[in-house]
Simulated scan of single mutants.
Amino acid sequence: MDPSLLPEPTEPIGQLGAPYNDLQIGTMVAFGITYFMATFFLACRYFQAIKLVKNIEIDLIILTLCYGLALAYFITMLKLMDYGWARHMPEIFASNWMNLLEFNSKLLPNTLIYLITPAVTKMAMLTILFKINPSFKYRMCVAAVGGCIFAYTLVLTYLTGGPCTPLKGDETIKCLMNVAISQSVLNIASDIAVILLPIPTIVNLHLNFKQKLSVGAILGLGSAVVICSIARLPYSISLGSSEDLSWEEGILGIWSIVEINIGIACGCAMRLKKLVTSYLPKMGWNSSQKKSTPYNSNSWGGTTAMGSKSGNKTFDGTNGTKGGYQLHSVQKGSVDPGSTDTIS
């Protein structure tokens, strides 16, 4: 960007960081609300893990990492505001854009964190989905989705940190725009894949409509982030031709913050069934279902699951030990207090 093309500044040097404009304040409010939601659900997960389940599982560790990355992402965003990020171009003093190296040194970690965090959040969700059905075909599908997410995230991260790095200045703007669009499209595709994965398993459960709806709602909570991914896409596409780039980036940043924090909250909520059944039994989780019959996963490789047993083993091959991901408690309409449920 050529600084000589910028309009005359409307504020003196040193006033770009504070006071903040409406969009910048809105960014802080959006982060505060959604980060509080993520904090609440993460705290519930830890309460459940320590008090009820007595086991801290891998998805909780991954989501805790995402929680820290979300805070780091917001901090880098605050640093960018000191250089005019989320302001209209006429407000930006030309001398600030002349020091591109310092500005871009703040933009690079901001971009890298956003590329990585949603992918890590989806990995946490996939660790949950992987264990709800022991069928080899089903688990291969889950692993394939996880592999695709890892692959495209690795490629986009390499491009952003290497050939398309903001540290090279204006020459990489078009490249960065292409990375942003690609990441948005791939994010939407992977979100949809995560939504679709458990559907065949749920459909084949021999449950009444209310119970199927309950299980589907829990497993589908992670899909809420797809709305944010779709909302971001038009702004990612328009960045390349925008005449008010810094303002458009601010709007894009709000959706990014919401997407990351809601993803963490949804990832935690997917596993709160044990907490709900323990403290909110009137919500219908413990209703009896006398006519339930074992689920047979013929469509996923002929594996008997979801409540079927062989000897003393549950469908996931465990002997009722902690960490097993059973849906049989939902199917039978009761919760075994000595076992860990699928979404517990």
Rank of each mutant, 00 (worst) to 15 (best):
L5M: 14
L6K: 04
Q15S: 14
G26R: 07
G26V: 06
L42F: 09
A43C: 12
Y46E: 05
Y46H: 05
F47L: 12
A49V: 03
K54D: 04
I56E: 02
T64C: 00
T64Q: 03
C66V: 02
A86R: 06
A86W: 02
M89N: 05
M89T: 15
P90S: 07
F93K: 11
N99T: 13
E102M: 09
Y114E: 08
L115R: 01
T121F: 07
A124M: 00
L126C: 04
I132V: 12
I132H: 00
N133D: 06
N133G: 01
S135A: 15
K137V: 07
K168N: 13
T172A: 13
K174E: 15
M177Y: 14
I181R: 12
A189Y: 05
I195W: 08
I199F: 11
Q211Y: 03
L213I: 02
V215Q: 02
V215R: 02
L221C: 05
L221H: 02
G222W: 01
S229T: 03
I237M: 11
L239T: 09
L252G: 00
V258F: 07
E259I: 07
E259D: 14
I262W: 06
C266V: 06
R271P: 04
R271W: 00
L272W: 03
K274H: 12
V276F: 14
P281I: 01
P281F: 04
S288P: 15
T293I: 14
W300S: 14
G307M: 02
D316E: 10
T318W: 02
T321H: 12
K322L: 13
Q326N: 10
